[in-house]
């Protein structure tokens, strides 16, 4: 390593420039929502909360989807993978609204997960109430635990 003469002012100035660059980046990502930036920070969108409960004969999946229209949700089952995708639509163009506060999220979402056992995909039912989508997936016959009485002679 070569010995170099230490210049306190240059050190300070590069430090300041670094800091300025960092600050600019921070403001940019904050005000532009981070979409255009380097990709180290971007919004992944909305992920609705999900519960998966297993009962003896079925799985019941609950998804929190407040304000989503029933027609805008699609549920697909492929093998053991259940996929829920859809869109939460805003009623009107936000540009036309005099919005004082806008905290609710709108846009598309998608979630997939693998169910532990095979289900009867033709008997899956879904209902939507109070902003909660409930999907009932009956287990395939071979996945239902059976108790067999064994006679002892």
């Amino acid at each position: 390593m070569a010995l170099t003469r230490w210049n306190p002012t240059s050190d300070l100035s590069t430090g300041l420039f670094d800091m300025q660059r960092d600050m600019n980046r921070m403001f940019d990502t904050f005000f532009r929502g981070g979409m255009q930036d380097e990709g180290n920070y971007y919004r992944t969108g909305w992920t609705p909360a999900i519960d998966i409960a297993e009962y003896e004969r079925e799985y019941r999946v609950r998804v929190e989807l407040p304000g989503v229209s029933k027609d805008d949700v699609r549920i697909t089952m492929q093998g053991n993978i259940l996929t829920i995708r859809g869109e939460k639509k805003q009623h009107e163009d936000p540009k036309d609204l005099n919005l004082h506060r806008s905290e609710r999220w709108f846009g598309t979402f998608q979630r997939s997960f693998t169910l532990p056992t095979t289900v009867q995909s033709d008997k899956i039912e879904a209902s939507y109430e109070n902003g909660i989508l409930t999907i009932t997936c009956p287990k395939a016959e071979e996945a239902i635990p059976k108790s067999i009485d064994v006679k002892v002679k």
Partner: peptide
């Protein structure tokens, strides 16, 4: 819960996302 507050000529509309409750 997250809210939207929208002002119109005659009224304010407050929308609150609160899934899973009974009316």
């Amino acid at each position: 819960p997250p809210v939207d507050i929208i002002e119109s000529d005659n009224h304010y509309t407050v929308q609150v996302d609160m899934p899973g409750v009974n009316k």
